[in-house]
Write a protein that binds this DNA or RNA. Sequence first.
DNA 1: AATGAATGAGTGTTCATTCAT
DNA 2: TATGAATGAACACTCATTCAT
Lengths: 232, 232, 232, 232
Amino acid sequence: MKSPEHVASAVSDPKLVGERRGAILDAAVRLFAEHGYYVTTIQQIAKASGVSIGLIYQYFGDKEDILFLSLKRVLDRYETEIPARLEGVSHPVDRLCTAVWAYCSIVDELRQVAVLTYRSTRSLRADRRSLIQQAELRTNRLLERCVRDCIDGGHMRELDEFMLVYQLVMFCHAWALKNWALRERFDLARYVSGGVALLVEPFLTARGRAAVAALRKRTGDFSDMGAREAQR
Amino acid sequence: MKSPEHVASAVSDPKLVGERRGAILDAAVRLFAEHGYYVTTIQQIAKASGVSIGLIYQYFGDKEDILFLSLKRVLDRYETEIPARLEGVSHPVDRLCTAVWAYCSIVDELRQVAVLTYRSTRSLRADRRSLIQQAELRTNRLLERCVRDCIDGGHMRELDEFMLVYQLVMFCHAWALKNWALRERFDLARYVSGGVALLVEPFLTARGRAAVAALRKRTGDFSDMGAREAQR
Amino acid sequence: MKSPEHVASAVSDPKLVGERRGAILDAAVRLFAEHGYYVTTIQQIAKASGVSIGLIYQYFGDKEDILFLSLKRVLDRYETEIPARLEGVSHPVDRLCTAVWAYCSIVDELRQVAVLTYRSTRSLRADRRSLIQQAELRTNRLLERCVRDCIDGGHMRELDEFMLVYQLVMFCHAWALKNWALRERFDLARYVSGGVALLVEPFLTARGRAAVAALRKRTGDFSDMGAREAQR
Amino acid sequence: MKSPEHVASAVSDPKLVGERRGAILDAAVRLFAEHGYYVTTIQQIAKASGVSIGLIYQYFGDKEDILFLSLKRVLDRYETEIPARLEGVSHPVDRLCTAVWAYCSIVDELRQVAVLTYRSTRSLRADRRSLIQQAELRTNRLLERCVRDCIDGGHMRELDEFMLVYQLVMFCHAWALKNWALRERFDLARYVSGGVALLVEPFLTARGRAAVAALRKRTGDFSDMGAREAQR
DNA sequence: AATGAATGAGTGTTCATTCAT
DNA sequence: TATGAATGAACACTCATTCAT
């Protein structure tokens, strides 16, 4: 009867639902990310979001609903923000690198929450876990499109774009998952630059490499992406 | 006062401690992997391991101790089994590929437990989490050694072996973490083969590629690793 | 200070009070009867009666008020409807039988609500419980009057009319309380007929029996009461 | 899988289960009878029975289990004690009257609990409610046997024994249900005596009445049952 | 007069941990 | 050494009631 993505609310005014849910989720995500899903109590979420315990249950059916929407929000950010960052970028290789950069910088911003995705997705009911997984696949498909365009444009040699993309995604997630190890050695820009060197450049054709060289002349080294980002 | 790796036991006979802990951990790991750490109860572990609740507290100080040793055991398997599988393999490129293959096949065997590592490491006290991380780094160093040997032998071009290795490790872990997506497209052998094509071959020198070609003649394609494994 | 039968209302217009209370009680009685008093929530009553939660508290002081008036309403129906059905019936034995029949048919109509009386009267404050009990006694007295008239008219032998009447009342209530068992064996008409045979006829004098025989000739068998009822 | 009469216990020793359940039920029944099922809390039951909250859940699956066994125990007493009291009583009419007397005196002893049966049976799951109802029918059948023996022995005229017995049962229950009204007018012995006069004697044949008269000569008036009971 | 969002004390239930045997 | 009955703090969740609008 109820679809898995549906989260019941006793309150009808959609604007109010949006606002309150937002505030509660903000607090919940912070607490989940810091202490974990099971250790965080509804009491804590109520206190942190400045509402009563009862009110939480007017906007969410149960604790799992809160986790679900918390995770959904992260996945949604990937799905909407990566395309947004690609707007105006036209060269296929540039688009691919920009997508990786965007993904990594979102992960960087949401570091603990990105980890939460790995810690807590299995705490969801199967049908909702599946929804989260589908959202991940949709984001992957954004990157697959970039890879395919590189290949079709003759900038990259033919390869299994599904596998390359999943490797790129793991690379982005690793910035959160293994940050404890990586931050000793890289800052974000250098990490992304290293990833591009490892997972993009080796597969570029002569034409692709030429294009990159031309781009670099115009825009500075990819390893300087942090600076480009800072200029936005 | 107590070192983080120390797990208290009220029982003195070390042989008994080893046996009992083994049995309890077997059950605990299975349950943690299937249902998660917080959802699994001590009473379930007691029943599944065929001992009394009280006895568990004779061999472990608290529930976290059980989690710690559960995770430790997984990391230890990586650390001991990968070198074991490398024994008798001498060519650097072969060693690297064999190491990746070994890592992936252990992950495959422990699929749910490997995921547990990601879900539950943060449920440990900081000092113990750090111990787990160090164990991961030690395993990484095994692979770094392989990469270094490839480079030093002129089979692979100079590159940041730390980064390459972490990417290889993420590749292995992904077989567990993203198995829900990957198993639709690959079996283990084809997955490993694809990973080698993506993360090893592009960095081989002409000499390295020649060596691989020679190896293939003698041992069959890398994509046939499943068969090689089966012969063991 | 407040008399027990008083139920506070913030609304002054008495017509409005009557209407609103009626609608709310209709819903409440239905819900109480089906699910029980404690299990039914004010929010359910609000939804079922199509008013807001706040409005309920304008017409009732608290949840117990609603229960009190719900039960009161049932008792009031007995008290007003039984006399109404006796109107125009003149022969004492006929009056007694008609009263029993009327009582049973009201119980039949309110089956679940009649049970509610037994389930929930003890959830009222003592002073209100007592009010409900007095209402029951008043209804009993209606029947006692019928019995007394039979005795005084020489249709029934002298006996303890209080005890007989309470047994008759239990007989009527049993149709609701034990309906799960009785409905397998009787329909309402046959049940009433059986009750009269058991609790009225044995106490009739020869004169009383003659009167019944005469009545039957005119009106059909008492076991045909259902049909008589249907003609109303 | 689980039959409705089964109540789970985490404790295996059956003697201990019996003892503890007994103690907990004693407290629970007292509290349920006094305050009602929903108003009574597990905390109160724990305190009243001198055990911890947790222990209650080692012996009962949930609160409903406690209610079920509480009610079951009352029904079981009827079912075992009435036959016990009939032992050694041989004359059919005497047996019937003794059964009624026994039923009423158990109800008298358990007055509040007998009421609980009416208040709270509907709070049980349907399958368990049905179990309680079946137990009631089994007790009814004990009385039906007595009535049948009276009829077969020529002491009572032919009649619907199911209906007579249910009326007798309601009479016994009424002593608890309507005690607030009845105790003003009768003591238990006089009440039972009145019940026999109302629901037994009118149906006796001349032979039955003769037998009763003979019995009375030997044992004293039925209205003196209280005294007979006191002599036990 | 009417709304329904907001409150939080109070509920049934769980489960890591203890300890008498 | 081994048991498992016993504990009780802590949790998720409910719902009668209030009150700003």
